[in-house]
Design a protein around this nucleic acid. Sequence first.
DNA 1: CTTGACATAGAACGTATGTTCCGCTAGAAT
DNA 2: ATTCTAGCGGAACATACGTTCTATGTCAAG
Lengths: 219, 219
Amino acid sequence: MAKGKLTDRQRRILDYIQDFSTDNGYPPSIRQIGASVGISSTSVVNYNLNRLVEEGFLDRDKNVSRGIRLTDKLLRATGNLGNVIRVPMVGRIFASEPVHLPSTDSPMFGADEAIEITRDMLSSTDEVFALEVKGDSMIDAMVSDGDIVVMKRDYHWRNGDMVAVWLRDLEETTLKYIYHEGDTIRLQPANPTMDPIIIEDPKHLEVQGKVMLVVRQLA
Amino acid sequence: MAKGKLTDRQRRILDYIQDFSTDNGYPPSIRQIGASVGISSTSVVNYNLNRLVEEGFLDRDKNVSRGIRLTDKLLRATGNLGNVIRVPMVGRIFASEPVHLPSTDSPMFGADEAIEITRDMLSSTDEVFALEVKGDSMIDAMVSDGDIVVMKRDYHWRNGDMVAVWLRDLEETTLKYIYHEGDTIRLQPANPTMDPIIIEDPKHLEVQGKVMLVVRQLA
DNA sequence: CTTGACATAGAACGTATGTTCCGCTAGAAT
DNA sequence: ATTCTAGCGGAACATACGTTCTATGTCAAG
């Protein structure tokens, strides 16, 4: 019952509700919906609205005029709500220590500090958190003191990703582009004038997260 | 008539409308407002609503249930609207040419391309535009190929601002921290390992804008 | 063919809701 | 004191709106 397909009419209804709401600041009435979609009968509109509720696109309140509300799910899909997401600021990052990862269980949203980012800046919004860069130790990654790096807790990576790695031997954290090359791993600085690090034994490094975004606020 | 002061009741009404709307996705009815604010008579609520319209805090639609809408003015004041601003992407920036500034008269919002930024990332939202960095010529500013710089068209600057300058002699654009030092101007690269440029004659440089934000999308 | 689920249409109904009118009070203006 | 206005309360009214019921047509399953 949950995953039925939407009819064309129902899609038009959703569109209309959304347009009307953003235009007027309140949702349309059943009769207005009918008029716009070309349904003469209020009961048919009512019927379709209830179907949309079952499908999870709408919420309705009984006996309330215009008691209709687009679901978060839908608003997110159309980008009209969750266009802004709050990314928790969970700490700092510097060369001399591994990245302090937020504990998995603790709700990341409990963090009192957070930065707001528009959704289209991030290709993924799961498991993301922000760190403030302290010191100039990341300049070879073209990241300076005070920058904010948004990371995703993700130990899988693909060639060309920029990752935060903890180098066990050197005992330092660094941000590098990472590449698999045969049996070795190449860590490439973002600064093209600098030389890569070649890691013979993957055991010597620990990928702590993928860098999704770097933000530098100047003025 | 425009600038009357709001009574306490009217303020509570505005608060309630806002809270109710965000909670329910649609505005409250007149009777709901009355109940929450402690007004037994619908006509009194109606009266106050009309006063709020006169003051410019509300819009109303006649004979429409819940036909009430908070003004942009109010939404902006409470920070519930414009949290996201669209910054027009007006071009690219590279060393070999001056910054291509958007023409002052043309509405910057006509730009079809734009990036969305949360308001709290920018200290100012006037006259801001975005440029994409092409090439590696800005690495001494810790800015890499593909980065997006958000600038403000502003020829006034203060010590420590990062600005885009066109160096007439060298015929190149560069991003530097700028400082007034007596009669000369010092342009300091963001990369602390690099040396500053000292400009003896201010005529030799042209400040084209202030860098407000640098964004780098990785994944 | 029959059945049943689904979608639609029209009409009637009940009520939630905005509108309007009349009356009252307190305070400022005349 | 009188007048005028802003603000409030109550009640009646008109209607915008959601709900419900009956009827019709379609189409795939039996």
